[in-house]
Amino acid sequence: MTDTPPLDVSFPDPSATGTIVRHPIRGALYGLMLGLGGAMWLTLAGVINLLDIVPTVIVVVAGIVIGILWSMFAPAKKPKSAGAG
């Protein structure tokens, strides 16, 4: 038999209160990256015409909005120490 190392699991203080921290700025920046990359791909694929500003801006803004909404309303991550692994 081999010794099993003790499982490092900790639980929050039962008296602690949960707080959800949101990152809208971070979400907007990642959304901007997603929008820019998506707009470039759509252009290379011929969905958006080359140098066509309006649809390009729409896709980029949509990416930013998606990023902000995701950062505000997505299911919250639990603290790593609260899970079983």
Binding site: A16, V21, P75, A82
Partner: peptide
């Protein structure tokens, strides 16, 4: 696109703290 997607997925979600 990949950086933005992964960043949103792993680094932008609301986080529950105690």
């Amino acid at each position: 696109a990949a950086g933005g997607f992964l960043g949103l997925l792993f680094n932008s979600r609301p986080a529950l703290t105690f």
